[in-house]
Simulated assay, not measured.
Amino acid sequence: MKLDLQNIPRRKGLSQDEFLQEYFIPEKPVVIEDLAKNWPAYSKWDFDYFREKAGEVVVPLYDSKPAKGRQASHGPAMKMPLKEYIDILEAGPTDLRMFFFNLLQNCPELVEDFQYPELGVKFFKKLPVLFVGGEGSKVVMHYDMDLANNFHFNFTGKKKVILYPPDQTGLIYKVPYSIVSMEIIDMDAPDFEKYPALAKAKGFETRMVHGDALYIPSKWWHFIKYETPSLSLTLRSLPRSPKKIAEVLKNILIMRNYDNVMRKIKGQRWVDYKNELAIKRTHKYAEID
């Protein structure tokens, strides 16, 4: 048994009007293969370049271990200079990842290496973020708390991406009071006996290589596996509708704070309760006994 996934469309020479009418407005993903081809980053951005330009910058690194008990749910596992992290990446498989690293704040000169695409979309230019991962590392299935539209540019390495639209949320074991699926589920090789609802979910997939730009619509779920050490940039467009802005505020001000408080009070019992509730709700929605 496999996940029910169809290939994300791949396009070249996509005009602004085509992008808006075919993908952005209907909220459908697309890989644009030539969107970054004229950027300096297209030819420059590899690990040697980042070692030279930003090797001394100390970066936070995250691993694949789920937070337990009263641990903070989004804390880094360690910090080290970028050049030392690159050495680890090049030495072999590792689950260490750089996550949501603000390029403008930490390496402002590298912002000159890319441009914001003219796609008819208003970008949030204060937050160009870098994502780096080692071979075999994985990002748990989640959607972004701020409901941004993401434009994810891959420069070094290869990665597998699985997406699910919001209307499939009921089938992918969403953890209550969070924006993640159950961390114990490996979306690269799911256990359908334990999590049978996943077989009913309909999603999309692609494998990103150098120069690919993936448009991930607002509130779409995404899982990422780094098949080789990989370096990517995400440019973000924040939601503008009152309904989505209200949901963002609820996520940040209420849901996240409530979850953190309950973690501190109940510890692992709270984590276990949420996972049990995720299974119960998903199987009820999928009509699985």
Rank of each mutant, 00 (worst) to 15 (best):
Y215F: 15
P176W: 02
P196L: 01
D167C: 03
N149G: 11
Y143A: 06
D144R: 01
P166Y: 13
F192E: 00
H210A: 09
Q168A: 06
G203W: 13
N154I: 11
I185Y: 03
A201C: 14
F155K: 01
N149Q: 10
M182D: 08
M208A: 12
I184V: 05
P166S: 10
N149V: 06
T156F: 15
G157Q: 07
Y143P: 09
D186A: 00
S181C: 09
I172W: 06
P196V: 00
F155L: 04
A197C: 05
Y173T: 07
M187Y: 06
A199Q: 08
K194G: 08
I162F: 15
S181E: 04
A199P: 01
K159I: 13
A197E: 05
K160W: 00
A199L: 03
P165V: 10
K174H: 11
Y143S: 07
Y177D: 12
N150P: 08
P217E: 08
K159D: 01
V209G: 10
L214S: 15
V209Q: 09
H210S: 11
D167I: 11
Y215G: 10
P166M: 09
F204E: 05
A148F: 01
V209K: 10
P217Y: 07
N149R: 05
G211L: 01
T156L: 12
N154T: 14
D212Q: 04
G211M: 02
D188N: 05
V161N: 08
Y173W: 10
H152E: 02
E205V: 13
E205P: 11
R207S: 06
A199T: 03
G203A: 09
M145C: 13
G157C: 02
Y173N: 08
V180F: 15
